[in-house]
Design a protein around this nucleic acid. Sequence first.
DNA 1: TGATTTTATACCATAAAGGGTATAAAATCA
DNA 2: TGATTTTATACCCTTTATGGTATAAAATCA
Lengths: 73, 73
Amino acid sequence: MKTILSDFIKLRRKSLHLTQIELAKKSGVGLRFIRELEQGKETLRLDKINQVLALFGHEAGPVAMRRGFEQDR
Amino acid sequence: MKTILSDFIKLRRKSLHLTQIELAKKSGVGLRFIRELEQGKETLRLDKINQVLALFGHEAGPVAMRRGFEQDR
DNA sequence: TGATTTTATACCATAAAGGGTATAAAATCA
DNA sequence: TGATTTTATACCCTTTATGGTATAAAATCA
């Protein structure tokens, strides 16, 4: 599945030419977590997500559901 | 602790004159979850958070860390 | 004030997330 | 093309988030 978060992470990671392995190490989460995150798994823990987002200067917050629109990339 | 998410939920809930119990029922999550969410617990599951945010027309997404600023209320 | 509602804290049980790892699939590139 | 890198899938094990509940604290209001 594709989510606002998975899209964001994947785009940012690639724009920095990082592999999933590198992102996992840099953010301090497991490799499997990065994969599940980029694949849009919903039942993830917020603190782990924030660990990754922090690398890109972001955090998880409330975003209006303008369906079909994407913001902040 | 106070987070961008806890603040948002608490404000929105109160603006609709809902109790935590009512919000829990409406969103389909446990009462204890609502409490932990409003108290800023970090290790919460994303899908549960989104269940609550959906009631307010929002979802969890990447938000730039403009520390000290709040957005979207 | 006291009575009532609302919120906070603490405990138990269960389901599942997360890390690690091994293998398969796919993408990249010489 | 084939070789190498990257990503995806599947499994085991440990930790813990969640729901429920019971009680305490705090807030609300007559």
